[in-house]
């Protein structure tokens, strides 16, 4: 059982707990380009996330997240590092996270923090906890792109 407990210490490493505690980006935006509420119905993780975009790029993120440490750490990481990303960046970052979880890939050099989720790779039931905030952000960007005429000319749009 010692091996399992050291795995648990890695899963709940200080970085995860620090991000969850810091809860970067917690709150709501006064003027959001899009708002998304997503949950994992079987486990109860829930995030309400708002983004504000300018020229297709995130200028502010706010979220209220209820859930496990992994979900809250992921939301907090996005609260800190999300501003500046465009839709392509969100897609790429999410794909990198999925590769870390599912294929044990190393984190990309520009997102080393994603490495803290690597130990969750061995726990398939927890992947959705980590990914929920990323899915919410992807939906929010999509929604903002769809409704905002200001973004029509954004250079990342291909259609």
């Amino acid at each position: 059982m010692n091996g399992a407990m050291s795995g648990i210490d890695a899963l709940y490493q200080e970085a995860i707990k620090d991000y969850a505690r810091a809860d970067h980006g917690h709150g709501r935006l006064d003027a959001a380009s899009a708002a998304v509420r997503l949950d994992n119905p079987l486990c109860g993780d829930r995030i309400s996330l708002q983004v504000s975009l300018a020229a297709g790029r995130i200028v502010a993120i706010a979220h209220e997240t209820k859930g496990c440490l992994l979900c809250r750490a992921a939301a907090s990481l996005l609260g800190k590092r999300g501003p500046g990303l465009d839709a392509t960046g969100v897609t790429a970052t999410t794909a990198a996270l999925e590769a870390i979880l599912e294929q044990r890939s190393p984190p990309p050099t520009d997102w080393p923090e994603l490495g803290m989720f690597a130990p969750a790779g061995g726990h398939p039931s927890r992947h959705k906890c980590v990914l929920l905030p990323f899915r919410a952000l992807a939906q929010a960007i999509q929604q903002a792109d769809a409704v905002s005429p200001a973004n029509q000319g954004a250079d990342h749009r291909e259609h």
Binding site: M1, A4, M5, I8, Y12, G67, C68, L69, H123, C129
Partner: peptide
């Protein structure tokens, strides 16, 4: 879920 994960390791 976090509680159950740590309990599972035990």
């Amino acid at each position: 879920h976090d509680i159950c994960q740590v309990l599972d390791a035990q």
